[in-house]
C-alpha cells in the first residue's frame, strides 16, 4: 500500500507540476484578441468616451484607432448577448462611457453562450467574470484546447494597441476564397451549414436575451449613456438568407426601445456590401471594409456630438 500511495503521489505531483507549468506558459504567451483588448481597456478605462460590444463581426469591423472619440472595442469572436452583457456590466465598474455601441446582428437575439464557450474560460482571468455554470477546470487557460491555442495563435505584431488585428494577410487570397465559397458546392455546403447554425431560431434564448437587453437599456438610461444598437455589413449574398421571423423579432424589440435620444439603431448591414474586396469572408469585413465602416461610424458619432 505504501509503495502504491507513494508512487501515485509522485505521479500526481508530476502531473500537477506539468499542468502548472503549462498554465503559467499559456498565461504568459496568450495572444488572444481578448487579452489585448482587455489590456487596453483596463489601462485606459478612466479616459474612455465609448465602448463597443459584439461578436467577431464587430471585432473585425471597428478599429478604435480610426475613431475620433477615445473608444475600446471589447467585441470577441463567437460572442453572444449574455456574454456581451456581462462584459458590459463589468466594464461599467471601471469606466464611465458616454456612448456604447452594441452589435445587434440579425439572429444575435437567438444566441447565448453556455459554459463550453471557449472565451468563457478567458473571461474569469481577464475580466474577473465568473460564469455560475462553468466548472472548476474552466478557471485554467491551459484547459482551453491547448493545441488550438498554438495552432491558431496570431503573431503579436498583428495587433495594434487596441487589440484590433490590423495587419490581416493578403486580401486577394480571401477574395479568391469567397469566390470559391460562392462557386464551389462543397464550400457552399459549409457556408450553408454555418449560416443555418447562426440563423437557427431559439425561443428560450430569444426571451432571455430580450430581458437582458431591456436591462441594458434601463442601465444606459439611468447612467445617461447613449446606447447605439447596430448591425455591421455582410456580403450581399449572405444578407437575405435569414428567415423573416428574425427581422420581425428584432424590429419588435427595437420599436419598443429606440427613441433616437438615448437609444439609437444603425443598420449598416447593406453598407458597401456589394464590394467583394471589402470582405474577409461572407460575413466579416476585411481591413479595407473596416476602414469604411469605422469612418461611417465616426461620421455618425460626430453628428451626435462625440
Amino acid at each position: 500500500m505504501r509503495k502504491f500511495l507513494l508512487k501515485f503521489s509522485i505521479f500526481l505531483l508530476i502531473v500537477l507540476a506539468v499542468m502548472a507549468g503549462m498554465e503559467y506558459y499559456v498565461r504568459c504567451v496568450d495572444n488572444s484578441p481578448l487579452r489585448h483588448r482587455s489590456d487596453y481597456f483596463f489601462e485606459h478605462a478612466g479616459e474612455l468616451d465609448g465602448i463597443i460590444y459584439g461578436p467577431s463581426l464587430t471585432a473585425r469591423a471597428i478599429n478604435p484607432e480610426w475613431l475620433s472619440p477615445s473608444t475600446a472595442n471589447l467585441a470577441m469572436a463567437g460572442g453572444a448577448i449574455n456574454v456581451d452583457y456581462k462584459v458590459f456590466l463589468k466594464s461599467l465598474e471601471h469606466a464611465e462611457p458616454k456612448f456604447v455601441i452594441f452589435d445587434l446582428t440579425l439572429a444575435y437575439l437567438e444566441r447565448r453562450n453556455d459554459a463550453t464557450y471557449e472565451n468563457l474560460r478567458r473571461l474569469p482571468y481577464y475580466y474577473g467574470i465568473w460564469n455560475e455554470k462553468a466548472q472548476l477546470k474552466d478557471l485554467f487557460l491551459a484547459r482551453a484546447p491547448f493545441a488550438d491555442h498554438f495552432l491558431n495563435r496570431p503573431r503579436e505584431a498583428d495587433y495594434n494597441k487596441y487589440g484590433f488585428e490590423a495587419s490581416i494577410p493578403d486580401e486577394c487570397d480571401n477574395i479568391a476564397k469567397i469566390k470559391r465559397q460562392i462557386e464551389n458546392k462543397h464550400f457552399q455546403l459549409i457556408a450553408k451549414k454555418r449560416a443555418g447554425r447562426r440563423l437557427a431560431l431559439n425561443d428560450a434564448n430569444y426571451h432571455e436575451n430580450v430581458a437582458m437587453l431591456e436591462e441594458l437599456v434601463t442601465t444606459c438610461r439611468e447612467r445617461n449613456i447613449t446606447l447605439i444598437f447596430y448591425e455591421p455589413p455582410k456580403y450581399c449574398e449572405a444578407v437575405n438568407v435569414a428567415p423573416p421571423v428574425h427581422y420581425y423579432r428584432r424590429s419588435a424589440f427595437l420599436d419598443r426601445v429606440v427613441d433616437n435620444k438615448t437609444v439609437h439603431w444603425w443598420d449598416l448591414s447593406d453598407f458597401q456590401n456589394e464590394e467583394l474586396d471589402h470582405f474577409l469572408n461572407l460575413i466579416h469585413v476585411n481591413i479595407r471594409g473596416a476602414e469604411l465602416v469605422t469612418e461611417e461610424i465616426d461620421r455618425r458619432l460626430e453628428e451626435m456630438g462625440y
Binding site: 505521479f11 508530476i14 499542468m19 503549462m22 484546447p145
Partner: peptide, 15 residues
Amino acid sequence: RWLAYLLVVLCILFY
C-alpha cells in the same frame, strides 16, 4: 512507462 502515463493523462486534461 511513466512517460506514457504522463502523456495519456495530459491528453485527457488538455485534449
